[in-house]
Design a protein around this nucleic acid. Structure first.
Lengths: 201, 201
DNA sequence: TCCTTTATGTAATGATCGATACATAATGAA
DNA sequence: TTCATTATGTATCGATCATTACATAAAGGA
Protein backbone atom coordinates (compact mmCIF):
# COMPACT_ATOMS: atom_id res chain seq x y z
CA UNK A 1 0.00 0.00 0.00
CA UNK A 2 1.40 3.32 -0.99
CA UNK A 3 -1.69 5.22 0.15
CA UNK A 4 -1.09 4.71 3.83
CA UNK A 5 -0.08 7.52 6.10
CA UNK A 6 -0.02 11.22 5.33
CA UNK A 7 0.29 11.80 1.60
CA UNK A 8 3.31 13.53 0.19
CA UNK A 9 2.60 17.21 -0.28
CA UNK A 10 4.96 17.77 -3.25
CA UNK A 11 5.44 16.31 -6.71
CA UNK A 12 8.36 13.93 -6.45
CA UNK A 13 9.15 14.01 -10.16
CA UNK A 14 9.05 17.80 -10.32
CA UNK A 15 11.26 18.04 -7.24
CA UNK A 16 13.74 15.56 -8.76
CA UNK A 17 13.89 17.56 -11.96
CA UNK A 18 14.62 20.72 -10.02
CA UNK A 19 17.33 18.89 -8.08
CA UNK A 20 18.81 17.69 -11.37
CA UNK A 21 19.09 21.27 -12.59
CA UNK A 22 20.89 22.27 -9.41
CA UNK A 23 23.38 19.39 -9.68
CA UNK A 24 23.77 20.08 -13.39
CA UNK A 25 24.58 23.72 -12.84
CA UNK A 26 26.69 23.49 -9.68
CA UNK A 27 28.05 19.97 -9.59
CA UNK A 28 27.64 17.49 -6.77
CA UNK A 29 29.95 19.04 -4.21
CA UNK A 30 29.02 22.66 -4.76
CA UNK A 31 25.31 21.89 -4.66
CA UNK A 32 24.45 22.33 -1.00
CA UNK A 33 21.45 20.96 0.77
CA UNK A 34 20.24 24.55 1.08
CA UNK A 35 20.53 24.94 -2.70
CA UNK A 36 18.64 21.72 -3.28
CA UNK A 37 15.83 22.20 -0.78
CA UNK A 38 15.47 25.78 -1.94
CA UNK A 39 15.05 24.79 -5.58
CA UNK A 40 12.88 21.79 -4.74
CA UNK A 41 10.76 23.94 -2.44
CA UNK A 42 10.77 21.35 0.32
CA UNK A 43 12.48 21.01 3.69
CA UNK A 44 15.39 18.74 4.37
CA UNK A 45 13.40 15.99 6.14
CA UNK A 46 11.10 15.69 3.12
CA UNK A 47 14.12 15.32 0.86
CA UNK A 48 15.62 12.60 3.00
CA UNK A 49 12.30 10.78 3.36
CA UNK A 50 11.71 10.80 -0.39
CA UNK A 51 15.23 10.31 -1.74
CA UNK A 52 17.38 8.86 1.06
CA UNK A 53 20.43 11.11 0.98
CA UNK A 54 22.18 13.72 -1.11
CA UNK A 55 24.17 11.00 -2.87
CA UNK A 56 21.04 8.96 -3.57
CA UNK A 57 19.30 12.03 -4.90
CA UNK A 58 22.27 12.69 -7.16
CA UNK A 59 22.10 9.16 -8.49
CA UNK A 60 18.44 9.59 -9.39
CA UNK A 61 19.20 12.98 -10.90
CA UNK A 62 21.86 11.43 -13.12
CA UNK A 63 19.43 8.74 -14.23
CA UNK A 64 16.85 11.38 -15.05
CA UNK A 65 19.48 13.34 -16.95
CA UNK A 66 20.56 10.40 -19.08
CA UNK A 67 16.96 9.43 -19.73
CA UNK A 68 15.75 12.89 -20.59
CA UNK A 69 18.63 15.00 -21.83
CA UNK A 70 21.08 12.36 -22.95
CA UNK A 71 18.57 10.27 -24.83
CA UNK A 72 18.39 12.51 -27.86
CA UNK A 73 22.15 12.56 -28.13
CA UNK A 74 22.48 8.80 -27.85
CA UNK A 75 19.62 8.12 -30.22
CA UNK A 76 21.63 9.75 -32.96
CA UNK A 77 23.77 6.66 -33.24
CA UNK A 78 21.24 3.88 -33.95
CA UNK A 79 18.92 6.16 -35.91
CA UNK A 80 21.43 7.18 -38.55
CA UNK A 81 21.89 5.15 -41.70
CA UNK A 82 25.66 5.12 -41.40
CA UNK A 83 28.14 5.26 -38.55
CA UNK A 84 29.60 8.45 -39.99
CA UNK A 85 26.23 10.18 -40.06
CA UNK A 86 25.45 8.79 -36.62
CA UNK A 87 28.55 10.21 -35.02
CA UNK A 88 28.16 13.50 -36.88
CA UNK A 89 24.65 13.82 -35.49
CA UNK A 90 25.88 12.64 -32.07
CA UNK A 91 28.25 15.60 -31.96
CA UNK A 92 25.66 18.00 -33.38
CA UNK A 93 23.06 17.02 -30.78
CA UNK A 94 25.74 17.47 -28.16
CA UNK A 95 26.48 20.97 -29.46
CA UNK A 96 22.78 21.83 -29.42
CA UNK A 97 22.20 20.50 -25.91
CA UNK A 98 25.34 22.07 -24.46
CA UNK A 99 24.40 25.55 -25.63
CA UNK A 100 20.65 25.37 -25.01
CA UNK A 101 19.77 28.69 -23.34
CA UNK A 102 17.12 26.90 -21.28
CA UNK A 103 19.69 24.62 -19.72
CA UNK A 104 22.99 24.81 -17.87
CA UNK A 105 25.77 24.71 -20.44
CA UNK A 106 27.82 21.57 -20.74
CA UNK A 107 27.09 17.99 -19.76
CA UNK A 108 26.10 16.98 -16.27
CA UNK A 109 27.84 13.62 -16.66
CA UNK A 110 31.11 15.28 -17.63
CA UNK A 111 31.07 18.21 -15.23
CA UNK A 112 28.95 16.91 -12.35
CA UNK A 113 31.59 15.30 -10.15
CA UNK A 114 35.22 15.30 -11.27
CA UNK A 115 37.05 15.25 -7.98
CA UNK A 116 36.93 13.17 -4.88
CA UNK A 117 36.73 9.44 -4.38
CA UNK A 118 35.80 7.62 -7.59
CA UNK A 119 35.08 4.23 -6.05
CA UNK A 120 31.97 2.21 -6.77
CA UNK A 121 28.70 3.93 -5.92
CA UNK A 122 30.30 7.32 -5.39
CA UNK A 123 29.05 10.32 -7.36
CA UNK A 124 32.42 10.58 -9.06
CA UNK A 125 32.64 6.90 -9.94
CA UNK A 126 29.06 6.88 -11.10
CA UNK A 127 29.73 9.55 -13.70
CA UNK A 128 33.01 8.03 -14.78
CA UNK A 129 31.23 4.76 -15.51
CA UNK A 130 28.64 6.63 -17.58
CA UNK A 131 31.39 8.28 -19.57
CA UNK A 132 33.09 4.96 -20.20
CA UNK A 133 29.73 3.54 -21.26
CA UNK A 134 29.60 6.25 -23.91
CA UNK A 135 32.80 4.94 -25.45
CA UNK A 136 31.27 1.49 -25.63
CA UNK A 137 28.17 2.96 -27.19
CA UNK A 138 30.11 4.67 -29.96
CA UNK A 139 32.23 1.62 -30.50
CA UNK A 140 29.08 -0.45 -30.87
CA UNK A 141 27.86 1.82 -33.64
CA UNK A 142 31.22 1.58 -35.34
CA UNK A 143 31.08 -2.22 -35.17
CA UNK A 144 27.74 -2.08 -36.91
CA UNK A 145 29.44 0.07 -39.53
CA UNK A 146 31.95 -2.71 -40.05
CA UNK A 147 29.17 -5.29 -40.39
CA UNK A 148 27.39 -3.01 -42.86
CA UNK A 149 30.52 -2.77 -44.99
CA UNK A 150 30.88 0.93 -44.26
CA UNK A 151 34.14 0.55 -42.33
CA UNK A 152 37.05 -1.78 -42.99
CA UNK A 153 37.57 -4.53 -40.40
CA UNK A 154 41.17 -3.41 -39.94
CA UNK A 155 40.20 -0.04 -38.43
CA UNK A 156 41.00 0.53 -34.75
CA UNK A 157 37.42 1.14 -33.62
CA UNK A 158 38.35 1.75 -29.99
CA UNK A 159 40.64 4.58 -31.05
CA UNK A 160 37.93 6.19 -33.15
CA UNK A 161 35.34 5.90 -30.37
CA UNK A 162 37.72 7.35 -27.77
CA UNK A 163 38.58 10.24 -30.05
CA UNK A 164 34.99 11.30 -30.60
CA UNK A 165 34.05 10.85 -26.96
CA UNK A 166 37.06 12.97 -26.02
CA UNK A 167 35.85 15.68 -28.39
CA UNK A 168 32.45 15.45 -26.74
CA UNK A 169 34.07 15.78 -23.31
CA UNK A 170 35.93 18.85 -24.45
CA UNK A 171 32.74 20.43 -25.74
CA UNK A 172 31.42 20.52 -22.18
CA UNK A 173 34.35 22.62 -21.04
CA UNK A 174 34.23 24.85 -24.08
CA UNK A 175 30.48 25.29 -23.61
CA UNK A 176 31.02 26.31 -19.99
CA UNK A 177 33.52 28.86 -21.22
CA UNK A 178 30.78 30.53 -23.19
CA UNK A 179 30.97 28.97 -26.66
CA UNK A 180 27.93 29.48 -28.86
CA UNK A 181 26.02 26.88 -30.81
CA UNK A 182 27.72 28.11 -33.95
CA UNK A 183 31.14 27.62 -32.42
CA UNK A 184 30.40 24.12 -31.16
CA UNK A 185 28.84 23.24 -34.51
CA UNK A 186 32.08 24.17 -36.20
CA UNK A 187 33.99 22.06 -33.72
CA UNK A 188 31.69 19.12 -34.45
CA UNK A 189 32.29 19.53 -38.16
CA UNK A 190 36.01 19.86 -37.58
CA UNK A 191 36.02 16.56 -35.71
CA UNK A 192 34.21 14.91 -38.60
CA UNK A 193 36.91 16.14 -40.95
CA UNK A 194 39.07 13.44 -39.40
CA UNK A 195 36.64 10.67 -40.30
CA UNK A 196 37.95 9.62 -43.68
CA UNK A 197 41.49 9.53 -42.39
CA UNK A 198 40.47 7.46 -39.39
CA UNK A 199 38.48 4.78 -41.18
CA UNK A 200 40.88 4.44 -44.11
CA UNK A 201 43.57 2.93 -41.92
CA UNK B 1 64.52 44.87 4.48
CA UNK B 2 63.33 41.33 4.18
CA UNK B 3 65.65 40.03 6.88
CA UNK B 4 63.87 41.73 9.73
CA UNK B 5 61.89 39.79 12.25
CA UNK B 6 61.84 36.07 12.83
CA UNK B 7 62.87 34.24 9.66
CA UNK B 8 60.41 31.94 7.92
CA UNK B 9 60.96 28.36 9.00
CA UNK B 10 59.81 26.71 5.77
CA UNK B 11 60.69 26.88 2.09
CA UNK B 12 58.05 29.03 0.44
CA UNK B 13 58.66 27.64 -3.04
CA UNK B 14 58.55 24.05 -1.88
CA UNK B 15 55.36 24.71 0.07
CA UNK B 16 53.76 26.35 -2.97
CA UNK B 17 54.65 23.40 -5.14
CA UNK B 18 53.06 21.04 -2.63
CA UNK B 19 49.95 23.22 -2.57
CA UNK B 20 49.83 23.15 -6.36
CA UNK B 21 49.78 19.37 -6.31
CA UNK B 22 46.88 19.38 -3.86
CA UNK B 23 44.86 21.84 -5.97
CA UNK B 24 45.77 19.92 -9.10
CA UNK B 25 44.59 16.64 -7.67
CA UNK B 26 41.51 17.77 -5.77
CA UNK B 27 40.43 21.03 -7.37
CA UNK B 28 39.97 24.34 -5.60
CA UNK B 29 36.79 23.60 -3.68
CA UNK B 30 37.62 20.07 -2.59
CA UNK B 31 41.09 21.06 -1.44
CA UNK B 32 40.55 21.96 2.20
CA UNK B 33 42.81 24.04 4.35
CA UNK B 34 43.56 20.87 6.28
CA UNK B 35 44.64 19.20 3.02
CA UNK B 36 46.82 22.14 2.12
CA UNK B 37 48.49 22.72 5.46
CA UNK B 38 49.01 18.97 5.79
CA UNK B 39 50.78 18.71 2.45
CA UNK B 40 52.69 21.94 2.96
CA UNK B 41 53.70 20.84 6.45
CA UNK B 42 52.87 24.19 7.96
CA UNK B 43 50.10 25.57 10.16
CA UNK B 44 47.29 27.76 8.93
CA UNK B 45 48.69 31.06 10.25
CA UNK B 46 51.94 30.46 8.37
CA UNK B 47 49.99 29.84 5.20
CA UNK B 48 48.00 33.04 5.57
CA UNK B 49 51.07 35.07 6.48
CA UNK B 50 52.96 33.82 3.43
CA UNK B 51 50.21 33.58 0.82
CA UNK B 52 47.28 35.74 1.98
CA UNK B 53 44.35 33.41 1.58
CA UNK B 54 43.28 30.14 0.00
CA UNK B 55 42.24 31.97 -3.16
CA UNK B 56 45.54 33.84 -3.33
CA UNK B 57 47.43 30.62 -2.82
CA UNK B 58 45.45 29.05 -5.63
CA UNK B 59 46.31 31.93 -7.92
CA UNK B 60 50.00 31.46 -7.23
CA UNK B 61 49.64 27.72 -7.67
CA UNK B 62 48.06 28.25 -11.10
CA UNK B 63 50.90 30.55 -12.09
CA UNK B 64 53.41 27.95 -10.98
CA UNK B 65 51.52 25.31 -12.91
CA UNK B 66 51.47 27.28 -16.14
CA UNK B 67 55.13 28.19 -15.73
CA UNK B 68 56.33 24.74 -14.86
CA UNK B 69 53.95 22.16 -16.28
CA UNK B 70 52.25 24.10 -19.04
CA UNK B 71 55.41 25.60 -20.45
CA UNK B 72 56.52 22.47 -22.26
CA UNK B 73 53.11 22.11 -23.86
CA UNK B 74 52.94 25.72 -24.98
CA UNK B 75 56.52 25.76 -26.25
CA UNK B 76 55.52 23.17 -28.81
CA UNK B 77 53.83 25.85 -30.86
CA UNK B 78 56.63 28.36 -31.50
CA UNK B 79 59.35 25.71 -31.60
CA UNK B 80 57.89 23.72 -34.46
CA UNK B 81 58.74 24.55 -38.05
CA UNK B 82 55.12 24.42 -39.17
CA UNK B 83 51.77 25.10 -37.53
CA UNK B 84 50.75 21.52 -38.24
CA UNK B 85 53.78 20.10 -36.49
CA UNK B 86 53.36 22.60 -33.68
CA UNK B 87 49.79 21.59 -32.95
CA UNK B 88 50.61 17.91 -33.31
CA UNK B 89 53.36 18.31 -30.74
CA UNK B 90 51.06 20.48 -28.61
CA UNK B 91 48.63 17.58 -28.38
CA UNK B 92 51.38 15.02 -27.88
CA UNK B 93 52.93 16.98 -25.00
CA UNK B 94 49.45 17.26 -23.53
CA UNK B 95 49.01 13.51 -23.76
CA UNK B 96 52.37 12.93 -22.10
CA UNK B 97 51.74 15.39 -19.29
CA UNK B 98 48.21 14.21 -18.62
CA UNK B 99 49.26 10.60 -18.14
CA UNK B 100 52.53 11.23 -16.30
CA UNK B 101 52.54 8.71 -13.42
CA UNK B 102 54.38 11.27 -11.28
CA UNK B 103 51.56 13.78 -11.60
CA UNK B 104 47.81 14.00 -11.12
CA UNK B 105 46.16 13.05 -14.40
CA UNK B 106 44.56 15.78 -16.46
CA UNK B 107 45.13 19.51 -16.54
CA UNK B 108 44.87 21.71 -13.49
CA UNK B 109 43.61 24.61 -15.58
CA UNK B 110 40.81 22.52 -17.04
CA UNK B 111 39.79 20.57 -13.95
CA UNK B 112 40.79 22.89 -11.13
CA UNK B 113 37.65 24.98 -10.72
CA UNK B 114 34.70 24.37 -13.00
CA UNK B 115 31.79 25.40 -10.81
CA UNK B 116 30.96 28.42 -8.78
CA UNK B 117 31.18 32.09 -9.54
CA UNK B 118 33.32 32.80 -12.60
CA UNK B 119 33.66 36.55 -12.14
CA UNK B 120 36.94 38.40 -12.34
CA UNK B 121 39.58 37.29 -9.84
CA UNK B 122 37.67 34.18 -8.79
CA UNK B 123 39.35 30.78 -9.04
CA UNK B 124 36.80 29.75 -11.66
CA UNK B 125 37.15 32.89 -13.74
CA UNK B 126 40.91 32.74 -13.45
CA UNK B 127 41.06 29.31 -15.05
CA UNK B 128 38.48 30.17 -17.68
CA UNK B 129 40.63 33.10 -18.80
CA UNK B 130 43.65 30.83 -19.02
CA UNK B 131 41.71 28.42 -21.18
CA UNK B 132 40.58 31.23 -23.47
CA UNK B 133 44.17 32.41 -23.65
CA UNK B 134 45.07 28.99 -25.00
CA UNK B 135 42.72 29.50 -27.93
CA UNK B 136 44.44 32.78 -28.69
CA UNK B 137 47.80 31.07 -28.44
CA UNK B 138 46.87 28.41 -30.97
CA UNK B 139 45.30 30.97 -33.22
CA UNK B 140 48.49 32.98 -33.11
CA UNK B 141 50.50 29.99 -34.32
CA UNK B 142 47.99 29.43 -37.10
CA UNK B 143 48.32 33.06 -38.16
CA UNK B 144 52.04 32.57 -38.43
CA UNK B 145 51.26 29.56 -40.60
CA UNK B 146 49.31 31.84 -42.90
CA UNK B 147 52.16 34.31 -43.03
CA UNK B 148 54.56 31.47 -43.78
CA UNK B 149 52.40 30.34 -46.68
CA UNK B 150 51.58 27.07 -44.96
CA UNK B 151 47.86 27.85 -44.56
CA UNK B 152 45.56 29.64 -46.98
CA UNK B 153 44.32 33.04 -45.84
CA UNK B 154 40.73 31.93 -46.36
CA UNK B 155 40.86 29.34 -43.57
CA UNK B 156 38.74 29.98 -40.44
CA UNK B 157 41.64 30.02 -37.99
CA UNK B 158 39.41 30.61 -34.96
CA UNK B 159 37.48 27.45 -35.76
CA UNK B 160 40.65 25.41 -36.07
CA UNK B 161 42.08 26.78 -32.82
CA UNK B 162 38.84 26.12 -30.93
CA UNK B 163 38.67 22.59 -32.25
CA UNK B 164 42.14 21.65 -31.08
CA UNK B 165 41.72 23.35 -27.72
CA UNK B 166 38.45 21.48 -27.29
CA UNK B 167 40.26 18.22 -27.99
CA UNK B 168 42.84 19.20 -25.40
CA UNK B 169 40.08 19.94 -22.89
CA UNK B 170 38.55 16.54 -23.52
CA UNK B 171 41.87 14.83 -22.97
CA UNK B 172 41.82 16.04 -19.37
CA UNK B 173 38.54 14.26 -18.73
CA UNK B 174 39.61 11.16 -20.58
CA UNK B 175 42.89 11.14 -18.67
CA UNK B 176 41.03 11.37 -15.37
CA UNK B 177 38.98 8.40 -16.48
CA UNK B 178 42.14 6.34 -16.64
CA UNK B 179 43.29 6.63 -20.25
CA UNK B 180 46.90 5.59 -20.91
CA UNK B 181 49.55 7.52 -22.79
CA UNK B 182 49.01 5.19 -25.72
CA UNK B 183 45.31 5.95 -25.80
CA UNK B 184 45.78 9.71 -25.60
CA UNK B 185 48.49 9.51 -28.23
CA UNK B 186 46.04 7.84 -30.57
CA UNK B 187 43.50 10.55 -29.81
CA UNK B 188 46.10 13.22 -30.60
CA UNK B 189 46.85 11.54 -33.91
CA UNK B 190 43.16 11.19 -34.64
CA UNK B 191 42.69 14.91 -34.13
CA UNK B 192 45.53 15.62 -36.53
CA UNK B 193 43.79 13.48 -39.14
CA UNK B 194 41.39 16.40 -39.48
CA UNK B 195 44.14 18.86 -40.31
CA UNK B 196 44.23 18.63 -44.08
CA UNK B 197 40.46 18.92 -44.27
CA UNK B 198 40.47 21.95 -41.98
CA UNK B 199 43.14 23.97 -43.71
CA UNK B 200 42.00 23.16 -47.24
CA UNK B 201 38.79 25.17 -46.83
C1' DT C 1 70.31 44.78 26.88
C1' DC C 2 65.84 46.45 25.10
C1' DC C 3 62.70 47.37 21.29
C1' DT C 4 60.54 46.40 16.97
C1' DT C 5 59.31 43.15 13.68
C1' DT C 6 58.00 38.92 11.78
C1' DA C 7 56.92 33.84 12.30
C1' DT C 8 55.06 30.07 14.85
C1' DG C 9 51.82 26.83 17.43
C1' DT C 10 47.64 26.44 19.90
C1' DA C 11 43.19 27.20 20.11
C1' DA C 12 39.23 29.25 18.90
C1' DT C 13 36.03 32.03 15.78
C1' DG C 14 31.35 32.24 13.21
C1' DA C 15 29.53 30.03 9.17
C1' DT C 16 28.05 26.29 6.71
C1' DC C 17 28.07 21.39 5.74
C1' DG C 18 24.95 16.99 5.46
C1' DA C 19 21.81 14.77 8.25
C1' DT C 20 18.09 14.18 12.23
C1' DA C 21 15.12 14.47 16.71
C1' DC C 22 11.00 15.73 17.75
C1' DA C 23 6.39 17.23 17.93
C1' DT C 24 2.56 17.82 14.91
C1' DA C 25 -0.50 17.04 10.95
C1' DA C 26 -2.85 14.20 7.68
C1' DT C 27 -4.17 10.03 5.73
C1' DG C 28 -6.17 4.72 5.68
C1' DA C 29 -7.55 0.84 8.47
C1' DA C 30 -9.91 -1.08 12.38
C1' DT D 1 -13.45 7.30 17.21
C1' DT D 2 -8.93 5.21 17.87
C1' DC D 3 -4.68 3.49 16.12
C1' DA D 4 -0.83 2.84 13.01
C1' DT D 5 1.62 5.04 9.45
C1' DT D 6 3.74 8.49 6.82
C1' DA D 7 4.83 13.51 5.89
C1' DT D 8 5.85 18.07 7.45
C1' DG D 9 8.13 22.18 9.78
C1' DT D 10 11.17 23.73 13.24
C1' DA D 11 15.06 23.51 15.38
C1' DT D 12 19.25 21.39 16.03
C1' DC D 13 23.03 17.95 15.77
C1' DG D 14 28.27 17.17 15.47
C1' DA D 15 31.63 17.86 11.86
C1' DT D 16 34.11 20.57 9.01
C1' DC D 17 34.84 24.85 6.52
C1' DA D 18 38.14 29.09 5.93
C1' DT D 19 40.01 32.34 8.87
C1' DT D 20 42.05 34.62 12.88
C1' DA D 21 43.29 36.02 18.27
C1' DC D 22 46.66 35.45 21.07
C1' DA D 23 50.77 34.42 23.43
C1' DT D 24 55.37 33.06 22.43
C1' DA D 25 59.72 32.61 19.83
C1' DA D 26 63.40 34.25 16.92
C1' DA D 27 65.63 37.46 14.26
C1' DG D 28 67.88 42.62 13.34
C1' DG D 29 68.64 47.36 15.00
C1' DA D 30 69.32 50.60 18.80
Amino acid sequence: MSTKGRPRAFDRDAALERAMRVFWKKGYDSASMADLTGAMQINAPSLYAAFGSKADLFKEAVELYTDKVGQRIKNSLPNAATAKEGIADFLMQTAISHTDPEQPHGCMVVLGALHGDDAENTPCGLLRDRRLDNVTLLRGRLERGVRDGEIAASVDLQQVAEFYVTVQHGMSITARDGATLEQLTKTAHAAMAAWDGLVSA
